[in-house]
């Protein structure tokens, strides 16, 4: 975990604003940006893969079995790109932060 925040004393900040934990942005949740929310209807999903790479926020988990699971709502900003590319109606956008 990144132990730096805006109360951290000066001497404990990394110099130059360097970050030594690459990829730690994952600790910053963007899910509360959503104003509409994708709902994954697994039963309709054919695992075609068309939504796998279109998510700007990397919020569609894909396992080693090449199958996707439900959205990662910690990060999903609700843009709806995934719903629009799904040919099977397996992703439905609903108003609001939560499904």
């Amino acid at each position: 975990m990144t132990e730096i925040n805006s109360n951290t004393p000066m001497d404990d900040l990394t110099i130059g604003g360097n970050i030594y934990q690459a990829g730690n942005a994952r600790e910053f949740k963007t899910g509360d940006w959503r104003s509409s929310c994708p709902v994954f209807h697994e039963e309709k999903c054919k695992q075609c893969g068309l939504c796998f790479a279109v998510c700007p926020d990397d919020s569609i988990p894909v396992g080693k079995d090449q199958k996707r699971t439900d959205f990662n709502y910690d990060y999903c900003k609700g843009c709806g790109v995934c719903a629009k590319v799904c040919p099977f109606g397996a992703i439905e956008m609903k108003e609001g932060v939560n499904k």
């Binding site: 942005a25 600790e27 910053f28 963007t30 926020d57």
Partner: peptide
């Protein structure tokens, strides 16, 4: 990674 702050639906990430 996720947790970046580009706009929703941005084409760049």
């Amino acid at each position: 990674t996720a947790g970046h702050r580009m706009c929703a639906g941005c084409g760049a990430p």
